[in-house]
Amino acid sequence: MAYRLLIVDDSPAMRAFVRRVIGLSGFDLSECFEASNGQEALEVLRREWVDAILTDINMPGMDGEELLRRLAADEVFRSIPAIVISTDATHHRRERLLEIGARGYLAKPFLPEALRTQLETTLGVPE
């Protein structure tokens, strides 16, 4: 099965990198959408169904924390798993984001294999 993903990050370079390492990792990707903040992500989600969301936290406009809250409060979007990709690897930030709805957490820097593992675990991809 191939998956549809949404990458949310204000850095175009980071979005390109994530898209690239997903390809390098061998993850089965059919389509990849991009947004530069939480508001844009919600607009994409109103148009396109995705299987998972990869989101940064620190972004101008609607940040990743608010995006997670909006997703959790929406009857349709709450079923889409969101994985946080953040430079903040501290345990209190990780715990906080998992509490408000993140289904996975990946701290930068990360290896391509770690991203694939996180995606497959979150999506329940059979080995």
Binding site: S11, S86, T87, D88, A89, T90, A107, K108, P109
Partner: peptide, 9 residues
């Protein structure tokens, strides 16, 4: 950005 976050973590 990544180096700063990594040091602080």
């Amino acid at each position: 950005n990544m180096i700063c976050g990594s040091v602080l973590s």
